[in-house]
Design a protein around this nucleic acid. Structure first.
Lengths: 333, 333
DNA sequence: CTGAAAGCGCTAACAG
DNA sequence: CTGTTAGCGCTTTCAG
């Protein structure tokens, strides 16, 4: 190929690797030849020659059949491939086998690492907490490691944060509706909600809890039964966006106005929340954003000094999308 | 590595490639050494040496920002990686850039093909209809090509099929509620519904159409407005599962019984449909199933004669999941 | 059934 | 700034 541009293969290599040590003239010729011949460098060859594989590995917990993944995989796939593709990288999603011991999962991961030799790997939650897997990423040929959450900070619990927000607005009857998705996650978030209420709650505080991950019709029934009586929640947290819309609808049929009579917040963001009347607030882990950031750090880390990026890690935390579904609690019940 | 087993690299290669031409004895030794040293063959090296990359490429239409993909990407990712992983393959998802001309998309694809050199590629809908892309997969180093639909059969339109099913049950007032997701797809399916009604419909038939892709609260309102009056649909098709559940709830509040007073069918299957009361029928393209089948054909095709698998292509068609939400139309309106 | 030789396409490391 | 020399880890092809 190279010879078509009357230069050596090395110069071609330099050009496609954006080395500054190429004369403008040579670069020109090479680029022209590349365009003409439709030349595309082979990933495999580059990887083997030590130039980096230009592959990033996203490891997620493969859910047992019938179970839901703990993550919005489609969002991650979309935003991740876009971010990586823009920089000439590829993103490979790899599930861990469901229901296996950490040690086995670690062995599996090590095998994948050996076979693919990615330039970096991301342990997606809840895998980021598994010490065995983190260890595997430490050891081998300096594979940069990333997780979504900062390694330092304690992860924030969305359920807890949402409850605190509502308590801060003076609400005393706060409801929580779990959603489908990973049961462990539901449990964890619900736990956060309980903690917040227990901590700040006086006797006047009341729990309204649906911990059974109700489906849509069940949520509608439930909302009706909660909002009909005089003693009712003045604020409701829903794990999934659908449920919030369902509650909003029920509130409407009962002539309750959001947010005057009822505040609503959901732990999953969704485009439909913007268009609803009123728009519904969301307090969620910005998973996709963090994922893209992690990918970019990984890509940036290539060539940089240490593997484990010392790059600026913006504290991830939660994203509170305030919309007009939140208000102070009404004076009287 | 190989020398640890007291054989040549060749023999190792044969063992890991399941060549039959190895003595049981040598095989034993090699396998032991492999386990001991934690040896993993490098994908890149195998690919470069011509042994096949063991990578499958899934090409999908990258949606414009804000738009939804036309496919259940998370399902495809889950089932696809599982299927490929079980056979030692990897699955790489690659989006086409949104809003570009077919020719450009083709160039992009060609570049990816050159860089990754997958053993096979799958054009996910709606890309499978783009001639330029299909052409790219024909040409190069015998990359096996697959699509979800059979190349021969005309794709079946789920909207049309659902409408026909209901017409066959004697329904004359049939509703159709579009959902979020790819707008083109909505349009297409709605068109099928219209065609079916126009074809079989007498004057007595009535259309109830929501073509504005309503969100959940809008669906709830809509269902109420449809089902309240005396002249109302006796059957409703919803594009997405949520909407079906919403309609079911509204029917309940209006004392309409499903399926006696109202038949329900949705074009998206979802676990929640099984648990609802009654369970709701779904008529959907079994995308994930077809995708897994396509992957397996691709993997099987490696080594086999022709690239373009002449393997038995089971007619894909649609999957009608009958549940108790379907019944004959009531005698009187 | 097993070994030896050659090379896949690139990039690092070193000269010029 | 550019060219030369190796060699990455495997598999193919060809001999034993």
């Amino acid at each position: 190929m190279a010879k078509a541009a009357a230069v050596s293969r090395q110069t071609v290599s330099r050009v496609i690797n954006y080395s500054p040590r190429v004369s403008a003239e040579a670069k020109e010729r090479v680029e022209q030849a590349i365009a003409q011949l439709g030349y595309v460098p082979s990933l495999a060859a580059r990887s083997m020659a030590g130039g980096g594989s230009r592959i990033l590995l996203a490891v997620f917990a493969g859910p047992a059949p019938g179970e839901n993944p703990a993550l919005p995989l489609d969002q991650l796939l979309l935003s991740g491939t876009a971010a990586c593709g823009a920089r000439g990288y590829r993103l490979l999603f790899e599930p861990t086998a469901p229901d296996i011991a950490p040690a086995e999962a670690a062995a599996q991961l090590a095998a994948t690492l050996g076979a693919v030799q990615p330039d970096g790997a991301i342990l997606l939650p809840p895998l980021d907490g598994v010490a065995e897997l983190r260890a595997v990423l430490e050891m081998p040929r300096r594979i940069a490691r990333e997780t979504l959450r900062s390694d330092v900070e304690a992860p924030v619990n969305p359920g807890e944060a949402a409850a605190e927000t509502l308590l801060g607005l003076g609400h005393r009857q706060v409801g929580f509706i779990t959603g489908p998705g990973d049961p462990d996650r539901s449990r964890h978030w619900l736990g956060g909600y309980r903690r917040a209420l227990a901590q700040k709650g006086s006797r006047a505080h009341r729990y309204f809890v649906a911990d059974n991950r109700p489906d849509l019709t069940a949520v509608l029934d439930l909302a009706h039964s909660w909002l009909m009586p005089t003693i009712r929640p003045t604020a409701i947290i829903t794990e999934c966006a659908d449920a919030a819309l369902a509650v909003l609808y029920i509130a409407g049929t009962l002539k309750l106005r959001v947010p005057r009579d009822l505040s609503l917040i959901t732990l999953e963001d969704h485009p439909a929340l913007i268009r609803s009347q009123p728009p519904i607030a969301a307090l969620h882990e910005p998973t996709a954003t963090q994922f893209v950031a992690a990918c970019e750090r990984l890509i940036a880390a290539r060539g940089a000094g240490t593997a484990h990026s010392a790059a600026p890690r913006t504290p991830p935390g939660l994203a509170l999308i305030e919309r007009s579904s939140l208000a102070r609690a009404p004076r009287t019940i």
